[in-house]
Design a binder for these strands. Structure first.
Length: 153
DNA sequence: GCCAACGTTGGC
DNA sequence: GCCAACGTTGGC
């Protein structure tokens, strides 16, 4: 099983909304590397749900992949925000997976707090200029973050 | 709102 | 196939 991290702006799609709705299609990814990461996902893979572009960015919870990559239909919606004429139903360019909330972190972890963890020094999320919206997380990083979330602040 | 980082596009 | 211009992301 592999681990991942999904970024989302809470104003677009928050952890709370995911919990309320029970599942979602991770549509709208328009970066090839992020897409390729999604295409490698298997049902049962876990990922962190990260809130970006807010005053204090944070990891809010854990999601589970419940459907493997399939064509992102928002690319075909003319006039939609995610329309891309290069992607057709016959030859899709963009893909999405479905995820469901797995567990809320015992304690949310903020970006500044994550930056203080030596084990996470090389984590993609924390590297300057790393803006991938869907990225892999190593087992070491995964465990370090989960155990940190179980410790009091 | 600024701007660094960096992916993408398109002219040549 | 190079690379300048452009657009986007996302922390600050």
């Amino acid at each position: 099983m592999r681990h991942w991290l999904f970024k989302s702006e809470p104003s677009e799609f928050s952890w709370e909304r995911l919990v309320r709705e029970g599942r979602t299609a991770w549509s709208g990814v328009r970066n090839f590397q992020a897409r390729n990461n999604m295409m490698e996902m298997k049902v049962g893979d876990l990922g962190f749900f990260y809130h970006s572009s807010i005053a204090v960015p944070e990891i809010a919870g854990v999601v589970k992949v419940i459907r493997e990559a399939y064509p992102d239909s928002t690319a075909w919606e003319k006039g939609g925000d995610y329309y891309d004429p290069r992607s057709t139903e016959k030859k899709p360019m963009w893909y999405m997976v479905d995820v469901a909330p797995e567990e809320e972190l015992a304690r949310r972890l903020t970006l500044p707090e994550l930056r203080e963890v030596p084990a996470l020094a090389y984590m993609a999320l924390l590297r300057k200029g790393q803006r991938l919206s869907v990225q892999p997380v190593s087992p070491q990083e995964w465990n370090a973050i989960l155990s940190l979330s179980r410790k009091p602040a």
